[in-house]
Design a protein around this nucleic acid. Sequence first.
DNA 1: TGGCTATGATTGACGCGTCAATGAAATGAG
DNA 2: CTCATTTCATTGACGCGTCAATCATAGCCA
Lengths: 172, 172
Amino acid sequence: MSGGERPGGAVARRRMTSAELSIWRSLVDTTTELRRLLGAQLSQDSNLSPADYQVLLALSEAEGRRMRSSVLAATIDWERSRLSHHLARMERRGLIRRDDCATDNRGAEVFLTDEGTDAFRGATLPHTRAIKRHFADALTSEQFDALDGILRSLRDHLHPEQVEAPKREGRR
Amino acid sequence: MSGGERPGGAVARRRMTSAELSIWRSLVDTTTELRRLLGAQLSQDSNLSPADYQVLLALSEAEGRRMRSSVLAATIDWERSRLSHHLARMERRGLIRRDDCATDNRGAEVFLTDEGTDAFRGATLPHTRAIKRHFADALTSEQFDALDGILRSLRDHLHPEQVEAPKREGRR
DNA sequence: TGGCTATGATTGACGCGTCAATGAAATGAG
DNA sequence: CTCATTTCATTGACGCGTCAATCATAGCCA
């Protein structure tokens, strides 16, 4: 209630308070710690890094478990070269493989091996449980609603153009 | 009030919903993006990485701008070896230096050089402004309150023992 | 004292991520 | 068709972070 702020607008406000700064630091510290913990758990349970998991997740949801490398990069919002390096490491471990692309001779197509599929399947359940235990179990449903709104505000502020595309599929 | 959840307790709840999972992913993605952005800004404005900034901040607040290496590691919650590597790189760049410790011949003492002090001073204002612009300006004061509570819940859940050190300043 | 263990700090190996450079194929203008 | 430009993907160099190993010293106890 009350205060003089507007959430969405491109407004110049008062100075940032030290409370706000310290909430920022706490956000960084807490998410860092959560990621460390969940990453360690994942790697211990399944010998996968969070980055591996992200790649496997995207591939396992793709048509035919295969994707153009550039599409994959866009999907998980990685730089191309990062993906290239990472795919090279994953290929060495037998989790994925790369083929030349049929329709564009520059392109590469990445696909899950059976081993990669199994690794992902085996990782999913314990990883989800760990997220529940360390994150979801800590919050009430009111807090989830609030957090959802906060994240939406942050995203809208970061990407002012594409605010509030309702619930549409496919197009961009 | 209302729902069936208890925030603090070590309670086993229902299955995690997909909405909760997707809020988790959004939290990871959004904080990652914010950190990338602020890190890029910092490095562009001041030629410092966020890690450099963390070290410089801790040192600049220390008695005499110097600290035992192990104390520094504990202060910013880094592994010793990470700190060692990072200090070596910062020393090469002239931001800090290391001395043998007077009271413990195993120990090292780290201190800010004048150059490091200047670099930190020059970085602080633009960095704080960037945090304000990209983070603080996106949220209402109600959202800050909610976020503060959420982070407290998460931290309490991660560290069940040291719950609820009240709100006093300075000592702990 | 001698010897065991614990601690402070560093190192090397290796996986990871960014940036700038490369090469190769598609695309488009003339 | 030819040349310039853009796009796809990879590579190398280098900074970063983790893990396991190392080494010296401190602390302890018999």
